[in-house]
Nucleic acid binder design. Structure first.
Length: 600
RNA sequence: CGGGAUGUAGCGCAGGUGGUAGCGCACAUGGUUUGGGACCAUGGGGCCGCAGGUUCGAGUCCUGUCAUCCCGACCA
């Protein structure tokens, strides 16, 4: 199927016009010429706006990098936009190095594109939807698998053109239920998304590894401390995916990692091993116990005066309208991703009171594995539990001394719990550690999920039609920028790595009204600019303290102060990150700056 | 979507029991200052989120609504 206005020549013509404008703007013009602070929009704040909670968000507002437009929608101000463009530039360079081709798709997308793969419905309320004047459905693109696949389908016919990786750096729209933490999780955000198209598995693997290399270099160049973790690929299908996680306490994802063997995985994905059961405990006969109004695990612990580990809790879920039961040890957390993958369903929600009553014949709080007629999935760990307590499927009753192998049959045993502290590494059995991370990048082997649905094929050497295999790869640009701040700040403000600093140097004349200082500072400013250094000139009629504080807040790596010794041709040179400070002759500034730019 | 909180000047906040809206910072002008967020004087800036209601009178009381943030649920 062809999208209107999107035929083979249409999109190609579009590229010719749009791409040069876009690239010129974003790649080469990091900024204008006059970098005098007295005329620039850098609205720093002394106090933290009430809207911000985490460090990076507070600092981005205080340093005048951005402002909120609506919940989850932000504007980047001049200083913030410079860093933003630098991150984009790094991404662009590393993508290009791996022979990915840049293009730009539209953000406004007709519904048909998503209807064919079913995602028009699957996305649900997370997709921003709108209609044109002819009442046709459109959306603001949340992600572009369909569009890229269609474009490649129409533009690539032969094995001779493969493999091919395309990417764009473009604004995405997702109507998040709860935007959070400034640009970390927002509703309008810029994403670098790339899509690879290959002939076979081996090719996909190669394209995937190329992106792995590119991503590692990108985050290295941003000086981020990150880990690559195994990620869940269930809902998207495909054969594997990894996330690039920036270690941070404010991260929304939990990572399970092993210091011994290097295993690291998102906790949605991390496997839990089946514990070795000991057989020397005597199995006792089942007994029914009246537990009037004792429903929760806490209440049960108190009632039976024992720990949560002696219970098996039964959770009732609705998987695409089918009611199922999931059983895990009382103190464990159910991993909904694992359960959803096992059930292979689109939607998994906790059942309501009515469904629970119909399924268990009892009020909420008294469900158990024995006598249930619905599908029951039991966590591997429960297999080894001896004489445990569980609901009796009868209001106000529990059963004690239940043993799953003895007392039930035909249940499915699956790993459905979330890994936690005290668990073992699935690879080497050492103790696993848990940390939090911010997902800044995700690489994904999609396989034929989209190419098959959209019939994206090529002709092989034998003239036979084959389905292409696809990978997709995303980086959140704003999120990366915020993560850099999250990992690089101190009590005074941001400490930008040189590679992404909005300016490399800031010149501060102590007293701009002093002619000697003003002249020297101006000369220095001009000669640094002539030498290709990105320099900010604080020519404001402010007291020194104000300028120093602002310079530190906005995090410029090198500060040059022109003060008392201006007459002798001596200035003060300070490195933001280390705090190292010394006085040097003006003539030596250029060399020193160039040196520091290449090493810091 | 459930729970909690907050909306008063650009930012941070104060405004018992109703009586013409204030403070600090920021901003403008003049002056004195100039190596770590100066001081003095003068000045500008407000539909107290919005809409109803009660009242002679509402920032304050009542109802509704919108927005923002936090916790949770959810999630390419």
């Amino acid at each position: 199927m062809q999208i209107r206005g999107f035929n083979q020549f249409g999109w190609y013509r579009g590229l010719i016009i749009i791409r040069p404008m876009y690239i010129l703007h974003r790649t080469f013009f990091i900024g204008g010429n006059d970098m005098k602070m007295s005329k620039m929009l850098i609205p720093t704040l002394r106090e933290v706006p009430a809207e911000a909670e985490i460090n990076s968000h507070k600092l981005m507002l205080r340093a005048g990098l951005m402002r909120r437009i609506a919940s989850g929608v932000y504007a980047y101000l001049p200083l913030g936009f410079r860093t933003f463009k630098k991150v984009e530039k790094i991404i662009r360079e590393e993508m290009d190095r791996e022979d990915a081709q840049e293009l730009v798709m539209s953000a406004l997308i007709p519904a048909e594109s998503y209807k064919e793969t079913g995602r028009w419905d699957i996305f649900g309320p997370e997709m921003f939807r709108l209609k044109d004047r002819g009442d046709r459905d459109f959306c603001l693109g949340p992600t572009h698998e369909e569009i890229f696949t269609q474009t490649v389908k129409n533009g690539v016919k032969s094995y001779k053109n493969l493999p091919m990786t395309l990417y764009q750096i473009q604004t995405k729209y997702r109507d998040e239920r709860r935007p959070r933490f400034g640009v970390m999780r927002c509703r309008e955000f810029v994403m670098k998304d790339a899509y690879s198209f290959d002939m076979d598995e081996a090719g996909l693997e190669e394209s995937y590894q190329a992106m792995y290399r590119a991503y590692s270099k990108i985050f290295d160049r941003c000086q981020l401390d990150y880990t690559v973790v195994e990620a869940d690929s269930g809902a998207m299908g495909g054969s594997g995916s990894q996330e690039f996680m920036v270690k941070s306490d404010i991260g929304e994802a939990q990572i399970a990692y092993c210091d011994n063997c290097g295993y690291a995985a998102n906790d949605e994905k991390a496997e839990c091993l089946e514990p070795i059961s000991s057989d020397d405990v005597k199995l006792l006969p089942i007994k029914e116990v009246k537990t009037l109004n004792v429903k929760t695990i806490e209440q049960l612990c108190e009632f039976f005066s024992c720990s949560a580990k002696t219970f098996a809790k039964t959770l009732i879920y609705k998987a695409d309208d089918i009611v199922v039961a999931a059983i895990i040890r009382g103190d464990r957390e159910l991993n909904e991703t694992k359960l959803q993958n096992h059930l292979n369903c689109n939607e998994l929600i906790m059942a309501n009171d009515e469904d629970i009553f119909n399924a268990t014949n009892a009020k909420v709080g008294f469900a158990g594995p024995i006598g249930l007629s619905i599908k029951v999935i039991v966590d591997l760990e429960v297999k080894g539990m001896v004489n445990f307590i569980t609901g009796a499927n009868k209001t106000d009753y529990h059963l004690i001394n239940v043993n799953i192998n003895r007392d039930t049959k035909n249940l499915e045993f699956v790993d459905i719990r979330t890994i936690g502290v005290g668990d073992q590494c699935p690879k080497c059995q050492n103790d696993i550690s848990i940390a939090r991370g911010i997902e800044v990048g995700h690489i994904f082997k999609l396989g034929d999920k989209y190419t098959k649905a959209l019939d994206c094929t090529y002709l092989d050497q034998n003239g036979k039609s084959q389905t292409m295999l696809m990978g997709c790869y995303g980086i959140g640009v704003g999120r990366t920028m915020a993560s850099i701040i999250e990992q690089n700040n101190d009590e005074y403000g941001i400490v930008w790595p040189m590679s992404v600093a909005p300016y490399q140097v800031i010149i501060i004349p102590i007293n701009i009204s002093n002619e000697v200082q003003a002249t020297l500072a101006n000369q220095l400013y001009t000669s640094l600019q002539e030498n290709g250094v990105e320099v900010l000139f604080d020519d404001r009629k402010e007291r020194p303290g104000v300028k120093f504080n602002d310079a530190e807040l906005i995090g410029i790596p090198i500060r040059i102060t022109v003060g008392k010794k201006a007459g002798e041709g001596i200035v003060e040179y300070k490195v933001r990150r280390t705090g190292d400070m010394d006085e040097i002759a003006v003539e030596k500034v250029i060399t020193r700056v160039k040196d520091d730019i290449s090493t810091l």
